[in-house]
């Protein structure tokens, strides 16, 4: 069972490559932002999984929580940027 969790983590890590591709390649900023968000949600799961692997999940949940919060804030800030400046940027 423990190794199952471990493999779960590894597979999750592997899945993360896909949004990373999207984030790196783009083409639009929205895609990158989406990639960031997707990676964020996977990382939250991954953190809990690492916690399980370390057998100290009580210590890791806090981080996952903080992570989810800050991911949300970062995405919102970036989309607010696009709200305000996106049109000007695409025009120019």
């Amino acid at each position: 069972m423990e190794s199952f969790i471990l493999y779960l983590g590894i597979v999750l890590m592997g899945i993360m490559v896909l949004p990373l591709y999207r984030a790196v390649v783009g083409p639009t900023t929205l895609d990158r932002l989406m990639g960031m968000n997707a990676i964020g949600s996977k990382t939250v799961a991954l953190i809990v999984i690492i916690g399980l692997v370390f057998d100290r999940v009580d210590m890791f949940v806090d981080i996952a929580l903080a992570y989810a919060m800050l991911n949300f804030i970062a995405v919102l800030a970036a989309s607010r940027y696009l709200h305000k400046r996106g049109r000007r940027d695409t025009a120019s």
């Binding site: 970036a78 989309s79 696009l82």
Partner: peptide
């Protein structure tokens, strides 16, 4: 928020 941003951009 992201979709909205895209539309507005």
């Amino acid at each position: 928020a992201m979709v909205d941003a895209g539309v507005r951009a």
